[in-house]
């Protein structure tokens, strides 16, 4: 999901992540409203917010342990998964540290590790690479690719256009709570006759006044939404 500041990316991702209530509209999962199957939906969902909402009272490894237990993973599975993620995100040095002792980059890695602890089928990452060093950013891209290859749906909000172009199967551009376009990067570049996604985005931003809401043509397997706010999408859009 792309968009200028205030476009509604965080609001929409928070609504899909069920941490914010929708004022109207619905989110459909398996053809049914997530609000009618909230607990089941949350079990397959991993939401990583923009601002780390880490529990400051327990250590990194305790936090990961509980992140698994909350989702009813077996104790053996929890321990195994925790070890995997600690290694994967390079958190070995900080397992007994409280989150307040972590730097911004490590906090972000820890937050993503916690999000992935229960092996969610839908992962929402809200601006996960903001403020990260380039090598950590590259590593995170690898993680996202692996998740995608493993059949996980990743909903990534970002304002880095290179990131969106490299990682996305489909790109959604939001403006003032409305979906402007939703298509593959290749289709967008072809349709707008541009070489880079960045040029497409700049073109869209420049011609916002004339742009009408466009509906999507293809589908992400895990999820579809109808409008999250009255103004957001006028018709049902399958993400």
């Amino acid at each position: 999901m792309l968009g200028v500041n205030g476009a509604g990316r965080t609001t929409l991702s928070s609504i899909i992540g069920t941490v914010k209530a929708a004022t109207s509209g619905d989110i459909l999962w398996n053809g049914r409203s997530v609000y009618s199957q909230l607990i089941e939906y949350r079990r397959i969902l991993g939401f990583c917010p923009q601002i780390p909402n880490l529990d400051l009272g327990i250590t990194v490894q305790q936090s990961l342990l509980f992140a698994g237990r909350f989702f009813c993973l077996s104790e053996r599975d929890v321990l195994q998964r925790r070890a995997e993620l600690i290694k994967e995100f390079g958190l070995e040095k900080y397992v007994d540290a409280l989150p307040s002792a972590l730097s911004g980059g490590y906090k972000q890695r820890f937050l993503i590790a916690r999000t992935l602890m229960h092996r969610p089928k839908l992962v929402i990452l809200d601006e996960p690479t903001v403020g990260l060093d380039p090598h950590i950013r590259q590593h995170l891209w690898e993680v996202i690719r692996r998740l995608r290859d493993g059949g996980v749906t990743v909903l990534l909000t970002t304002h880095y256009l290179d990131e969106a172009e490299i990682l996305s199967d489909r790109v959604c551009v939001l403006d003032a709570g409305k979906i402007l376009v939703l298509d593959t990067p290749e289709n967008l570049k072809r349709n707008y006759q541009k070489d880079k996604l960045e040029d497409v985005f700049l073109h869209l931003v420049a011609s916002l006044a004339e742009t009408t809401v466009t509906t999507a043509t293809t589908a992400i397997p895990a999820l579809s939404t109808t409008s999250a706010t009255p103004e957001m999408v006028e018709e049902e859009v399958v993400l």
Binding site: V19, R42, R43, F47, P49, P52, N53, L54, F71
Partner: peptide, 14 residues
């Protein structure tokens, strides 16, 4: 501040 409560409220329980 960090709104850690949002994590608690997004757990799979009412």
């Amino acid at each position: 501040g960090p709104r850690t409560i949002t994590y608690t409220l997004s757990l799979p329980m009412p």
